[in-house]
Design a protein around this nucleic acid. Structure first.
Lengths: 335, 335
DNA sequence: GCCGCCTCTGTAATCGGTTTCATTACGGGA
DNA sequence: TCCCGTAATGAAACCGATTACAGAGGCGGC
């Protein structure tokens, strides 16, 4: 119907001319409809329809001193754990008219260098950091826009945090395994400096203590499938094994169970395995994986909402802790 | 060192004043360094360093009539298959000074509605479509920026395409299975209308014909873990099963193998299984999965480069077909 | 009847760059 | 010596919106 319009589409000026008003009125009609009269509003909206007008975001953002973009920094996009969080973030931002720009911090060090460029008001209106291993210095410079940390956090960076209750989750794991009669429970962790690793380790230790159990073998991993596999190989080589293993995430549990089976060990008969995250895959492994469910979508939603409030200059809670629940499946059994 | 700078950072005007030149010269120094004198360049760069200046992209884009953003539309971010493609796209775009905005078309229909808003020059400079199920009409309007299709494509949309050689891949699968002595080979497909499903089906049929084999059972899936599981249940209920199964992606193969095992069928002894994609997980399943390796990163790199050329008004190849290779692992065996 | 307030609208300044056009200085050829 | 071309730079227009400010008109209160 309007393919005869100029190639690059209509400007606010064109809409204003057709509606017989000024550009200011068009702008007001679109951003604050309440303050224009009913009659004017109709005329403007009709002209918008007719021209297929849509605002030039660069112009708007230049004038409003905003960029319209929120940068989310995730350590690994390939991990399905993050994609649902990003989806939650994206939902909130879209409703607020903001774009989500996703940065994968794992790619290479070159990308990390450029982070300094991006953590800048001239580039984005806010940051959501999902990677606790970044340099806090970048985020404390005066040009850095508001920051919210989700899931992981950076030691020494004081920015609002949204995370699942990792400590309580790890305690639930111990409760479950101890309830099944296990007294020797091993732990496959993430990287030692990672905040998730620390919280889960703390909750795990507290749980053991509460049940009067002594710590058993601790194997350091890095949240990857491969490190789960490596952990299984170490376990198989042990003469005196624990009877249950708590993995700090589902990917490692998956790598671990695969390698265990290949070595002839049966889960849960020879070894019970518990994961953390409840990614979709955990329901399809054999045996299906007992794991802690994290409210991933909710983490994303909360993080984004808090960031928006921060950008608008409102007060926000320092910590938002979301509860987790244990999904008991086939990979854990009694002694 | 420069935390005394004004809260919102330096403007080009500030840099110009400190360097003792005009804003035009600063701009030229940063975008076309060749046309300013050596001496001036040094002074400007020193001033940039001193102020920590970084350009305001909204202003630049407003003047240059570009938005600085490329929108990638993917059907499912949670699928690890896409994340590596996006990573390749992101690398190229970052080097070109463009942002990658990721849209998940699976979220809900509301998001799809808004697609119309986004497929617009006022919103982004180009589109990379990874979802073949979208409405072609959106992309043919005059306001729509250049489009490149990657992996999947939309029937009836003439836009450059970058994809793996799905037909050749499916033929390789048949060669491999026929070579092992299989004569009854089933197929678990993606959605019937999907372009990947069609290509793989065509290659599969051609392979069968070349080996003088008759088609066997075809089970419709949707690329999800759950549909792989459902396919396994159908297979188990059959009295007269094929001896090998080709799954259109690794996720379905994963869901299928898990469910098969739970029903007591052994892979590859009772049934050989082949996947497609070679996601990292396929190496960690038990048994490890024989699958077709797709050059995911390369697909992303090519798609992004082609889009950049398109944006600059250059000629681009209509189709870019990248080759695949078979990764033979444990899930396939002889009869 | 006059004043002040409120509602609605228009004019024009503004955001921060890029780019066109004009200007200057200098070197070489006639 | 004069003219022209070239290299380097500056002044100012421009991109397309938002918004501060001002003005017009209507209405109620004194």
């Amino acid at each position: 119907m309007n393919d005869h319009s100029p190639a690059r589409g209509a400007r606010i000026k064109d809409v204003a001319r057709i509606a017989g008003v000024s550009t200011a009125t068009v702008s007001r009609t679109l951003s604050t409809p309440d303050i224009v009269s009913e009659e004017t509003r109709k005329a403007v909206l009709a002209a918008v329809d007719q021209t297929g007008y849509s605002v030039n975001l660069s112009a708007r953002h230049l004038r409003q001193q905003r960029t319209g973009g929120i940068l989310a920094l995730a350590p690994n996009l390939a991990n399905p754990f993050f994609s649902e969080i990003l989806s939650g973030i994206s939902d909130v931002l879209r409703d607020a008219g903001l774009n989500l720009i996703v940065g994968d911090t794992s790619i290479n060090s070159d990308a990390r260098m450029r982070l300094v460029d991006y953590a800048n008001r001239a580039r984005c209106d806010g940051l959501i950091v999902l990677d606790g291993s970044l340099d806090p210095g970048v985020f404390t410079r005066s040009q850095c826009p508001p920051v919210v940390q989700a899931c992981e956090w950076i030691a020494g960076l004081s920015a609002p945090r949204v995370f699942a209750d990792n400590e309580a989750g790890a305690e639930l794991v111990v409760d479950h395994l101890a309830g099944l009669g296990h007294t020797r429970i091993g732990h496959v962790t993430g990287p030692p400096s990672n905040s998730l690793t620390r919280s889960r380790e703390a909750g795990f230790q507290r749980g053991l203590a509460r049940h009067g159990l002594a710590p058993d073998v601790v194997i350091r991993g890095d949240f990857s499938l491969a490190s789960g596999q490596a952990a299984a190989e170490r376990l198989c080589a042990m003469s005196d094994r624990p009877t249950a293993i708590f993995c700090d995430n589902d990917e490692m549990a998956c790598g671990l169970m695969g390698a265990l089976r290949r070595s002839g060990l049966r889960v849960p008969d020879d070894l019970s395995v518990v994961g953390f995250d409840d990614i979709e895959l955990s329901r399809h492994l054999t045996p299906t994986l007992t794991t802690l469910h994290q409210p991933r979508k909710a983490i994303g939603l909360h993080a984004a909402r808090i960031l928006l409030r921060l950008i608008d200059g409102h007060d926000v809670p320092e910590d938002t802790r979301l509860s987790v629940s244990l999904e008991v499946r086939e990979s854990t059994g009694g002694l």
